[in-house]
Design a protein around this nucleic acid. Sequence first.
DNA 1: CAATCATGCGTACGAACGTACACTAGTTGC
DNA 2: GCAACTAGTGTACGTTCGTACGCATGATTG
Lengths: 179, 179
Amino acid sequence: MTRRLDPDRRDRIIDACLELIAEAGVAGTSHRKVAERANVPLGSMTYHFTGMDELLREAFTRFSDTVVAVFEERLGAAGSVAEARAAVVGIIHDDLLASPRDLVLTHELYALAARSPEYRQITHRWMRRSRAALERHFSPDAAAQLDALIEGLSIHRALDTEPTDSRRTVDAVARITAP
Amino acid sequence: MTRRLDPDRRDRIIDACLELIAEAGVAGTSHRKVAERANVPLGSMTYHFTGMDELLREAFTRFSDTVVAVFEERLGAAGSVAEARAAVVGIIHDDLLASPRDLVLTHELYALAARSPEYRQITHRWMRRSRAALERHFSPDAAAQLDALIEGLSIHRALDTEPTDSRRTVDAVARITAP
DNA sequence: CAATCATGCGTACGAACGTACACTAGTTGC
DNA sequence: GCAACTAGTGTACGTTCGTACGCATGATTG
């Protein structure tokens, strides 16, 4: 068996792909640009991935796994319901979609998921995991509502004019999680 | 002044553009494909629009105006807080992003808005108007929270595995809008 | 050492792209 | 009826795209 020259070439390609999508969108992403960004020859693209679709699927899978891992960690560290509530507020205000990069990637993924089931599997997995993390502290009802609230508040925080009012976030989380 | 041959040619182009984005995403949309779909010659594209960006901006402006108009109408018809609450539930479950078309278009727009300020103006306007519509019935705090909740629930309804549970939606709306 | 084989790359091809621009045709003003 | 003008079109250019495929290179086997 021939030893691999550059074992994380595949990884580099995926990372470069995510960076590129964050900057230029899926619309502005091509094999050539990804290859250049990842410092691999164009031929590597078709060697490592059957096509653009496979590359995108792997890239967005990695992305969502990374984001949800932070989510789980934040919530896992909470030892009480009060701490869990605080964690949720923190997630909305600090972590999730805080960087433009994550915001763009999330919506590019959603746009793909809205159009084709093969990407919807990725969002399904993502949402299932985040809801499960919430259910360790809250009832299933509250978890589902909170999950949606986190989504909505994160988006509006990023795409609305109004500056964020953390008091409102705290209040909303309290209302949803009240017994 | 020369009379226009086909006065709604521009409109047709914009509509065709939206249809195409709904099917193939911004990534799969080109001047040529839009022209074909709208039954106009390729030359018309550059004649009516300075470039892809102008076309996309106009298309998404029209789209968001249409969606928010339905939103306003639904809420405007409510004569009491209770009716307004019911309208919100209805919006989440029936209207908004109910069709795959609207879902795709929304996220394609968000992806653009996440990346560039010129598209963010469109989302700003959209969110300002929907929040204003909510504020006719609810306090500014509740309106902002509701707006986010609507966003999040609509998304999760579309991209999550779980079937929608309308009882949860009613409950969440009640919690947010409780005095 | 020779034969074999998998890994990985360079290149080239045809299709599709955005855009510029010379142009036609039909209208207006005199 | 002719000159000036404008709305709208057809085409062609240079670029970029995805992908196929023949080839190099270095390891493995006998």
